[in-house]
Nucleic acid binder design. Structure first.
Lengths: 215, 215
DNA sequence: ATAAGTGATATTGTATACAAGATGTTTGAC
DNA sequence: GTCAAACATCTTGTATACAATATCACTTAT
């Protein structure tokens, strides 16, 4: 699909940054990257512009482009916004979710439960992600869905940690069931509040991890 | 500040698109733009990459970059998301807004009222914008604030129309007072719901305009 | 007359060349 | 020995050159 190498480079770099391959503030050397990707500086520079536009890197004129990883404060803010977006999706989905959507949610939940029974963290993580994405879709607002997916993707790397907490998967599962029940009852405010807390707890768990890490 | 012409070009192009200087689907000719800005294609191309990354234009490999204006459906979706974001800001601001913030809100409202008394639409528009931005700031979440500002800016051109409705300014003003009262009472849910409706009505008014326009 | 094929043209994508400012080092003065 | 200034080097920003593909017009065959 993508003939443009610049696009492929942008995508690859983005993944690398999210995967933690670069330290915060690290300079993205045009020549090195050009060498790495076996291209000239031109497509690399176009890719860097995209990273900067997406807030993944920062540019200082005539100095270069530098990786810009979110600090603890910004991360908490992102988690908080994620909770708000999910709550909004849930609120709208309460009255808009189709039968098909509800069925998909039930199916996703079954697979989540399977993952718990098998103690398969990776599977739970994947199925949990799908569960939430079905709700975004259920908002019947393509723009909101897209923006929410973007932030979900940005937080992916950090969300992964928090499942390690003892009993978190089981609790998360119970919350899923509560969410589905509220959606079936079309109780918009209930859906919103449960979802908000369900997601916000991730931020708090993450905060805990950070605190433990620093002590 | 900006030595990079590519950045200036990107900003200018963005403004031009928002100002309606291009039709939907119009191709952004690299050579013409290079000529217009008196530069080579290189900085123009880097600017176009930024527009594409920001969703203002779409790129088809080996075909070019095309302006991508939101259609009626996407616009309604954007307005709806705006209402949700404002509600979220208000919810958080209810418990976080400082005394200074509340005072600024009161001052902004005074200037809004002045604008109404003078029947000065432009002034009302500007002061109303500031009023809302104070609430974003009041959320004490820099990330959320930034994202909300971005969407507010994107919708600026379309929001302008809806003030033309008879009596809209006065009604909007009354809602502002209700919002401030709820913020002072630290009633998070009340703030959220009033703000949501206050913003959502813009989308509905816009919808009306579109319908009238098409008949 | 229409449709398919072929060639000319135009436009994008990438590489290279050049210009200008930032960085780092050496030299010299105090 | 330290600080500052001049110089060398490196890196970014822009222009130009080249390669490859899409577009369009024209021809030709059915």
């Amino acid at each position: 699909m993508d003939i443009r190498r610049a696009d492929m480079i942008a995508e690859t770099l983005e993944q690398h940054v999210f995967a933690g391959k670069y330290r915060d503030g690290e300079r993205l050397d045009e020549l090195k990257l050009a060498d790495q990707f076996c291209v000239s500086r031109t497509p690399v520079r176009e890719a860097l512009q995209v990273l900067v536009a997406n807030g993944i890197a920062e540019q200082f004129p005539r100095r270069g482009v530098f990786v810009r990883l979110p600090g603890p404060v910004e991360l908490m803010e992102m988690f908080e916004m994620m909770a708000e977006l999910e709550a909004s999706c849930g609120r709208l989905a309460a009255s808009r979710m189709t039968e098909t959507g509800l069925r998909q949610l039930a199916e996703a939940n079954i697979r989540c439960q399977e993952a718990i029974d098998q103690n398969d963290h990776a599977k739970y993580y994947a199925e949990n992600e799908k569960f939430h994405q079905i709700i975004y879709r259920g908002s019947a607002n393509g723009y909101l869905e897209q923006q929410t997916l973007r932030l979900q993707n940005k937080l992916k790397a950090y969300r992964r940690m928090q499942l390690r907490f003892r009993g978190r998967m089981a609790q998360s599962m119970a919350e899923h069931r509560e969410i589905v029940a509220a959606l079936e009852a079309e109780d918009a405010e209930k859906v919103a509040s449960v979802l908000r807390n369900h997601v916000a707890v991730q931020g708090e768990k993450f905060h805990q991890l950070m605190a433990n890490f620093n002590s």
